[in-house]
């Protein structure tokens, strides 16, 4: 196996343990893997970022806003959005190196299993969609690629109108933008949204609001990076 990020060959030392019970093949070499930081320990109860307080500053700002405060029950994320992950996501999503998603598989699945325990049994998994134009450009939807890693059934309940790229806007501009999501099919189950990055949380909240307005009881979200 070659490391998906630095292309160095990964040589696994054979021990009795992995001789008898072979590990899953590693996708990243030890050095690259060590540069990704998983979110562990004390977190913000709402957005899932590393935080000593129960509710981080970011979420307090959301809480003050009546329109948005009750839309999302909680968000959980796997990694901190550090420079390494930023570089990886840029190459994966913007350059379009699809296969890099496999580098996240083990951690993403493990974290998902933990999160889903806190959700009701009949929760439906829904990836955040892309607009048609963006989807053509990238040739894949990154949220759907992540969802497929989980190997669980999922439904695409939303569509998205073409808007400006979120990553090019300031927080203020993001907050005041119109909701780009529309619902295709109404379900009455709780929902867990899957996306790549939770930055301000506006994308996820727009999607969540769309679902809540259509009659979903609760919406959670799960992202790769926070």
């Amino acid at each position: 196996m070659h490391c998906l990020w630095c292309d160095k060959q990964i040589i696994v030392e054979v021990t009795w343990d992995n001789f008898l019970y072979p590990d899953k093949p590693k996708k990243l070499c030890i050095e690259c893997k060590s540069q990704l930081t998983k979110i562990t320990g004390a977190i913000c109860k709402l957005c899932g970022r590393k935080s000593e307080d129960e509710q981080c500053k970011d979420c307090e700002r959301w809480g003050g806003n009546r329109q948005w405060s009750k839309v999302l029950s909680f968000n959980r994320s796997v990694y901190s959005y550090n420079p390494m992950l930023q570089a990886m996501i840029a190459k994966w999503k913007y350059r379009g190196d699809y296969q890099l998603v496999e580098a996240f598989q083990t951690d993403f699945r493990e974290a998902f299993k933990q999160i889903v325990r806190a959700c009701p049994k009949d929760t439906v998994v829904v990836p955040i969609p892309l607009s048609d134009k963006r989807r053509y450009e990238r040739a894949f939807n990154q949220a759907e690629a992540l969802t497929q890693l989980l190997e669980v059934p999922y439904q695409c309940l939303l569509t998205r109108r073409e808007g400006e790229k979120q990553s090019k806007k300031t927080r203020q501009e993001r907050l005041s933008s119109t909701n780009p999501f529309q619902i295709i099919e109404v379900v009455r189950n709780p929902i867990i949204l899957i996306d790549d990055i939770y930055t301000t949380g506006i994308t996820i909240r727009h999607a969540a609001k769309c679902l809540i307005d259509a009659g979903c009881p609760t919406v959670y979200s799960f992202t790769l990076a926070r």
Partner: peptide, 19 residues
């Protein structure tokens, strides 16, 4: 690497070297 391309609807390869 092979992936399900949303442009053409088929699964096919792309080059990772010059991505």
């Amino acid at each position: 690497a092979k992936f399900a391309c949303a442009r053409c609807g088929n699964s096919h390869h792309y080059c990772r070297k010059c991505v």
